[in-house]
Design a protein around this nucleic acid. Sequence first.
DNA 1: GCACGTTATATTTTATAAAATATAACGTGC
DNA 2: GCACGTTATATTTTATAAAATATAACGTGC
Lengths: 115, 115
Amino acid sequence: MSNIKIKIQLVANDSIAMGPGKADLLEAIQQKGSISAAALSMGMSYKRAWDLVNTMNKSFKQAVVATSVGGGKGGGAQITEFGLQILTRYRAIEAKANLTVQVETKVLMELLLDN
Amino acid sequence: MSNIKIKIQLVANDSIAMGPGKADLLEAIQQKGSISAAALSMGMSYKRAWDLVNTMNKSFKQAVVATSVGGGKGGGAQITEFGLQILTRYRAIEAKANLTVQVETKVLMELLLDN
DNA sequence: GCACGTTATATTTTATAAAATATAACGTGC
DNA sequence: GCACGTTATATTTTATAAAATATAACGTGC
């Protein structure tokens, strides 16, 4: 099998508080320094990226991304200390869960065609 | 927090081979004895349920649901021995992963507003 | 041989998500 | 004070997913 993996979504009140998409976006923002550059690098529209950031900023107790408008470089965005904690914790959960059920998952995926 | 949980999806080749939706459907079919009754009980259209069953039957090495057309009761569907294995294995993966990261997930979810 | 409830399938309609487009406001550097 | 690249936001268009509707075929029981 070429590409098997587990997707772990943390759900609160029927909406996904954190998942691989938001985590990847946070990492891209961290790396690129702006929402627009992050969106571009992920092949995502700026609006969608901004909406995701906005949702996260509103749903957590503190902002996960800090933005600035104007200035020499037009503005930008960076992950906050708090956001980095969220990201780190999520990645840890992801990795731990993945490792724990790695064997069982492989066995199950073996029952798929092709691969 | 009212309702926090983890959603675990098993992904192969960028499509979800098994997840909570399909697992719930398999259980409903097992309980109801037909795709249509299962769909109805889940508030899902028959077509969608049938498509999901069809996708599973085609993607796994053996059928997970056996269907029959006609007869005294018009026909029906039941989960196969193979399908029950898939379901059982998935539920086990789900439970094990959940248990493993239970504490970490709770800590992370604590950082959400409201709850 | 007709009625029944179901599977299997196609087609059309509706709802939802995402992309595309547009624009104002911002603040620093020149 | 103008240019720049960005955030923030609204609106329109497009794509995608799901529901709704329709229909044929099936096989047993009556």
